[in-house]
Amino acid sequence: MRPPPQPLPRSVRSKIAGLAVAIGVFGLSFGVLAVTAGLSPLVACAMSLLVLAGGSQFAAVGVVAAGGSPVAAVVSGALLNTRFVPFGLALAPLLEGGLLRRAVASHILVDESAALAIAEGRHGRASPDRVFWLTGITVLVTWNVGTALGAFAGGLIGDPEALGLDVAFPAGFLALLAPLLDTRRARVSALAGVAIAIVLVPTAPPGVPVLAATLGAALALLVPEDAGGTR
């Protein structure tokens, strides 16, 4: 028996709530877009439930809407999701439980759940495993409820971009990134990651820039550790 879980700190719950709102609205716009692109509402909902990776879903539906083949849609969607390999590797030691629990956790691995778990775990403020699960389940619910509302009820709301909600994600990730930059190597890793991604964006297929940015972490090993630091 595990001990009864302590409620997560308020600060963590408010972060999850903030991301949930943005994800819900984007789920809504995905539902609308998918139906506009010719998917049946049921197929759009199944996609959100089974894929659960917003960026790749928008990309795949976008390819189909532009007249691309289903194979091209799958490839471009999957390529965007390659970043989940490095995210999952960084997250793996923070997850608890056996194979089955990890198998379920893998499905709710998204940018938000991985980033929050890693950021909160780093400073020991909350159990990264519990932050991961609460964020992942919240994303699962809000993304799918949003998709269903958008797919079945259609354009109830305006354009999420008019509300600047596309910026909610980089702004939130920036806030999660800042406390990770506490060593020289971490700062080099981040800067190298940005440089690699920016250079690749104009030429490489979507998804490759962020995947390649993981090389930034390896490059950071070339600079000496902070004096007295362990990382």
Binding site: R83, P86, F87, L89, A90, P93, D111, A115, I118, A119, D166, V167, F169, P170, F173, L174, L176, L177, L180, L181, R185, A186, R187, S189, A190, L191, A192, G193, V194, I196, A197, I198, V201, P202, T203, P206, P209, V210, A213, T214, L215, G216, A217, A218, A220, L221, R231
Partner: peptide, 23 residues
């Protein structure tokens, strides 16, 4: 390396979502 990965990944994600457009 794995310890330094989140910084590189999050920073790249922020960069792509901030200034990335289609190609």
């Amino acid at each position: 390396v794995s310890d330094l990965l989140p910084a590189a990944l999050l920073a790249a994600l922020v960069a792509v979502q901030t200034v990335g457009a289609e190609a």
